[in-house]
Design a binder for these strands. Structure first.
Ligand SMILES: [Zn+2]
Ligand SMILES: [Zn+2]
Ligand SMILES: [Zn+2]
Ligand SMILES: [Zn+2]
Lengths: 169, 169
DNA sequence: AACGTAACGTTATAGTATAACATTTTCACT
DNA sequence: AGTGAAAATGTTATACTATAACGTTACGTT
């Protein structure tokens, strides 16, 4: 039902329809638990975000929202930003600050920090779940700093893109 | 001459003029080493950034640049963005992605990742120097991911603001 | 001085996000 | 079913962040 980090196959060829289905099931469960309403718009936005393992920008979501609702007027930015705010609050998506983009959370419902491996070549992002680094905790304690949230964005090359590079260069 | 992390006093009351002077001395040294030109504009921008330990936005820099050069026309955004690009390339400043803002590097000239403790109350940011977390290295290795850069932004309360909060509430 | 390059000025525009207010939908309660 | 409060969405305008493109100036070399 929920999506666990050990299942994260962002960098691996896989049947992605399972990712989408699992994410929607988990989202319904989370919203039910929180007494939050998982409306059609919010479900559409989450589905669009989960269409891939690549972070997607708010305006790109807007375009796909229009495509998913043919015949309707193109929604305005606040529509998608409000849905994004909701999904972020429910812990269903994360924001990748270095890309101004959003990506589905692979283990919603459990409190955790935002930690990603992001490929600069194909822009696929893989969330990973690790506790707070000991050195960070040590630094914070030394500086008398109370940690509220942690954001870790690691950029580099995923297996596929690294292989492609070594073949060409 | 250079500014070492163990000297970082962002959260501590201190004679900040030393920070500014040290940063300028270090910047001249780094640029000399790299054969890069530390022009008046670039020095002004770096000085403005180092006016505090709080990240500052590009447009705020623009305003202060105008104030620092009375009588001149207000510079346009590309002017400050170009200076910022230069300073980022030379490793003299860092970008805080979660704030769209820039802050002086406390140990320029040495290769390192961007790691900050950021107070949500006073927005003071303290750079800290820690190696890559072992768990991150492990995760990356497990995912066959080649790390290029790491960005770690920790938000919370600095000592002063934590004290103020506990007194009031 | 003449040249080539790097830096900076200038104008316009792209890309990201939110404020403010109107309208519709939903839900609890009668 | 009818009513009203609250939540969600629609709509318009605008703020904030960043860059493209091109012209001009300043600098170092010959
Ligand atoms: Zn998938
Ligand atoms: Zn997550
Ligand atoms: Zn200081
Ligand atoms: Zn630094």
């Amino acid at each position: 039902m929920s999506v666990h980090s050990e299942d994260n196959q962002a960098f691996i060829d896989h049947d992605h329809s399972h990712c989408i289905e699992d994410a929607l099931v988990a989202a319904r469960a989370v919203c039910a638990t929180n007494g939050a309403r998982f409306t059609r718009l919010r479900e559409q936005v989450l589905t669009i975000i989960w269409a891939s393992h690549q972070p997607i920008g708010a305006y790109a979501i807007l375009e796909l929202l229009l495509a998913a609702n043919p015949g309707q007027r193109k929604p305005a930015p606040p529509t998608v930003y409000r849905a994004l705010d909701f999904l972020l609050q429910q812990g269903l998506v994360h924001r990748i600050n270095s890309l101004n983009a959003y990506i589905g959370c692979t283990h919603p419902g459990s409190a955790h920090h935002s930690q990603f491996l992001i490929c600069t070549e194909c822009s696929t992002a893989r969330e990973f779940d690790a506790g707070l680094p000991a050195q960070l905790v040590h630094e914070a304690a030394g500086a008398d700093f109370q940690i509220a949230s942690v954001l870790l964005e690691v950029t580099g090359l995923c297996p596929q893109c690294a292989t492609g590079r070594s073949q060409h260069g």
